[in-house]
Design a protein around this nucleic acid. Structure first.
Lengths: 235, 235
DNA sequence: TAGATTGTTAATCGATTAACAATC
DNA sequence: TAGATTGTTAATCGATTAACAATC
């Protein structure tokens, strides 16, 4: 039996999914500039990947271009938005209203991409009752009751590491499907919950390690830098 | 001719380098708890990797354990600190004193790891002259002159994306060796400058995409989650 | 010594790149 | 049609895992 039409694709590399928002940003840029058509090589150049990789990434999800022509910008934009779920609404709660929590709450672009911030939580009584990015800050002890009334898709953890696991447990129990974790601590979550870590501390340390190992040697210092040469012959 | 004793290793996977700070944090934890000795399997379990990977990662840099015994916590800690350069001083400037810039400047742990914040820069006249995290905020137009007097190793870019490339150019011209970029924009830097991007926007978007694709399917939603099973036989 | 655990090589796995047939 | 560029397969490359000999 053929798989149902709307079956979601399997076995897509995480790295490919992470590149989709980059392609999306490039296409938004083209769209704003009134560009209607783009080839894989031009779009790849903008995104900092090879044309081959761009086509491969897109092909995990479908065929959105036309041979001999390229991609229609508005059409490809719409398809990527469909994949990323930008037409959906994602309900988000943010726990920890320090600098990082604020950065998320006040970044207005998220709202345009379908993210709805339903609540923010902190232990600091001076913050409770205030608004950050237009969201009311509640006390953390209200997190579980709040989630039972306002289920969230995504939880952002921007707390000290000592409490991060407890917060994650509350979120998981409340049915959160994804957690963005800024605490520099390994969180244990069930495998049906997606976890994304952003760790400023390890990022800065590994950057310093790479940067200060003296002049360019081998693979270590040549990633992510400058424009990828057009290595593909592609004829 | 044998390579000189202090030759730095080549061809080390970036992913391995990024795991070093994680191992470091685990070892700090053990050290605080007075643990003197650890096996690769226990440490790997703490770090959320396989024992095999841990040993492989360490072996890119040397042999720090003893067969049949494991690793001396203080010794391995010291070795990793040597690799990460935690005994060095890294001079850092932060450009953009919004929420993300503040998060970096106010995170006191960095100071303990050898990071010295020499200057912070912003265009907002209300911020110029104030102190954030104990660092004086200067106007961005002073960035280039400041760097010529106080050379920095690392530059942090936490500005709006419109100006990120200009700031990066100034940093590169001033001899900065690594850039931590929070702006959601692809920066072009020469290949001898190491670039690390942290993009909250693409991180949240790809998280939402993965989290809301329905229940666990294939590789996509099973990475980074929970504890890795002990797959290694290792006898 | 016997048991344990590393260091290190080889096998596997996965992701990227190259190539080219399909086709617009 | 001829030229261009995608879609897609195959080849390459790199990173992870397994295995086990070395050895403490």
């Amino acid at each position: 039996m053929a798989p149902p039409y709307n079956e979601l694709p399997r076995g897509i590399p995480l790295a490919a999914i992470k590149r989709l928002p980059v392609y999306h940003a490039c296409l938004m840029n083209l769209s704003r500039r009134g560009v209607d058509r783009v080839s894989s090589s031009v779009l790849a150049e903008m995104a900092g990947v090879t044309a081959s990789q761009l086509r491969q990434d897109l092909n995990y999800f479908g065929s959105f271009g036309q041979q001999g022509y390229g991609y229609k910008v508005p059409l490809l934009l719409k398809e990527i938005e469909k994949i990323l779920g930008i037409d959906n609404e994602f309900h988000v709660v943010v726990v920890g209203v320090g600098n990082l929590g604020r950065a998320i709450l006040e970044y207005q672009n998220f709202r345009r991409k379908g993210f709805i911030f339903d609540g923010a939580f902190d232990v600091d009584e001076r913050l409770v009752g205030t608004e950050v990015g237009g969201v009311l800050v509640r006390h953390v002890c209200e997190l579980a009751p709040f989630l039972s009334v306002h289920p969230a898709d995504i939880g952002v953890i921007a707390t000290p590491e000592e409490v991060a696991q407890d917060i994650a447990d509350i979120m998981v129990d409340a049915g959160v499907k994804g957690i963005l974790n800024f605490a520099s601590m390994r969180l244990l979550v069930p495998e049906n919950v997606v976890l994304e870590d952003i760790n400023l501390s390890t990022a800065l340390m590994s950057l310093a390690c790479r940067a200060c190992r003296g002049p360019s040697r081998g693979r270590v210092v040549t990633l992510h830098e400058g424009e990828p040469e057009q290595r593909e012959k592609d004829r």
